[in-house]
C-alpha cells in the first residue's frame, strides 16, 4: 500500500454484490414500521416549526417563501443522514459486532462485493427516504412539478456519495465511539452551513469558498433546490461536476480503505 494510487484501485465485482444489498433489505423490511416513520414525520415537523413558524417572520428569501426555500434542504439532509449513518454506525455494527462480513466472505463473495453492497444499500436508504418525503412536501405545496421528480433518481446518487463517505470513516475508526467525531466535526457543521437554512452568501467570503470546495451537502442542496424550485442555480453545472468527481474518488477510497482494514 505504499503507492497512494492503490487506494483508488477499481473493485472487482460480480452480480453477487446484490446479495449483500438483499440481506440488508430483508432486515429493513422485517422492521419496516420503525423505518418508514422518521422520513415521513421529519419533514412535517421541520416544515411546521421552521418553514411556517420561523418562516412567518421571513416574507421572502431568494425570491421564494421560507418553506419553499428549506424544503429541498430537508430532503438533502435526509439523504445525507440516511447514507452516512447507514454506512457508519450500522455498517460498523455489522462488521465488528455481528461479524456479518466474516460470514459473507466465507462464501464466493469477495470483500469488495461486501463493501459495495453496503454502499449500495446506504444509497437505497437515501432513495427510500426521499420517495417517502416528496409526497409529503408536495402536499405542503412547496415543490415544483415535474422537475421535482428528478430528485428521486438523484437521491440515489447523492446517497451513494454520503454512504461512501461514511464507509471511509468506518474503515478508519478505531472503535464505534470515535464515529462520533466525524458526526460532530463534519456532519453537524454541514447540516448548518451548506446553504441549507440560509443562503451561503450571508457567510464571510472565505467560509463560502470552504463550503463550496469541501462540503458535499452544499452541492446536493444546490442541485435539489434547482429541481424543487424549477429554477436552475448558477452554481448547478459546477455542483454536478463536483459531485461526480467526488463520488468516484470517495467511492474508490472507501472500498480500498475497507480492504486495507479487513484483508489481514
Amino acid at each position: 500500500m505504499n503507492n497512494p494510487l492503490r487506494l483508488l484501485a477499481l473493485p472487482r465485482l460480480t452480480p453477487r454484490v446484490l446479495h449483500v444489498w438483499q440481506r440488508n433489505r430483508d432486515v429493513f423490511v422485517k422492521t419496516y414500521r420503525v423505518n418508514f416513520l422518521p422520513p415521513f414525520l421529519e419533514p412535517i415537523l421541520y416544515l411546521l416549526s421552521l418553514g411556517f413558524g420561523v418562516g412567518s417572520f421571513i416574507p421572502e428569501i431568494a425570491g421564494v417563501s421560507y418553506a419553499q426555500y428549506i424544503a429541498p434542504a430537508l430532503v438533502s439532509i435526509s439523504i445525507m443522514n440516511a447514507g452516512f449513518f447507514e454506512c457508519t454506525y450500522a455498517s460498523y455494527v455489522r462488521m465488528y459486532y455481528q461479524k456479518t462480513y466474516d460470514a459473507i466472505i466465507a462464501t464466493p463473495l469477495t470483500i469488495d462485493e461486501v463493501i459495495v453492497g453496503e454502499i449500495l444499500w446506504g444509497a437505497t436508504r437515501a432513495f427510500i427516504n426521499t420517495v417517502i418525503m416528496l409526497p409529503v412536501l408536495f402536499l405542503f405545496g412547496v415543490l415544483d412539478l415535474p422537475w421535482s421528480l428528478f430528485v428521486i433518481p438523484f437521491a440515489f446518487l447523492a446517497g451513494f456519495l454520503f454512504a461512501s463517505i461514511g464507509m471511509c470513516f468506518t474503515a478508519m475508526t478505531p472503535g464505534i465511539d470515535t464515529l462520533n467525531l466525524p458526526t460532530f466535526l463534519f456532519i453537524t457543521p454541514m447540516f448548518l452551513f451548506s446553504g441549507t437554512f440560509f443562503p451561503l452568501t450571508l457567510l464571510p467570503k472565505f467560509v463560502q469558498y470552504l463550503a463550496v470546495a469541501l462540503l458535499p451537502l452544499t452541492h446536493v442542496v444546490t442541485v435539489i433546490r434547482s429541481l424543487t424550485l424549477g429554477t436552475p442555480s448558477p452554481l448547478l453545472p459546477f455542483s454536478l461536476v463536483w459531485l461526480t468527481v467526488a463520488t468516484v474518488l470517495v467511492f474508490l477510497l472507501a472500498v480500498n480503505l475497507m480492504k486495507r482494514r479487513l484483508v489481514i
Binding site: 430483508d26 422485517k30 455481528q98 461479524k99 456479518t100 466474516d102 460470514a103 466465507a106
Partner: peptide, 13 residues
C-alpha cells in the same frame, strides 16, 4: 464449507 471459531450467525434473522 466453513465452521468458524467464533460464531457469526446473523442475529437479525
Amino acid at each position: 464449507g466453513v465452521v468458524p471459531q467464533e460464531n457469526n450467525l446473523d442475529p437479525d434473522f
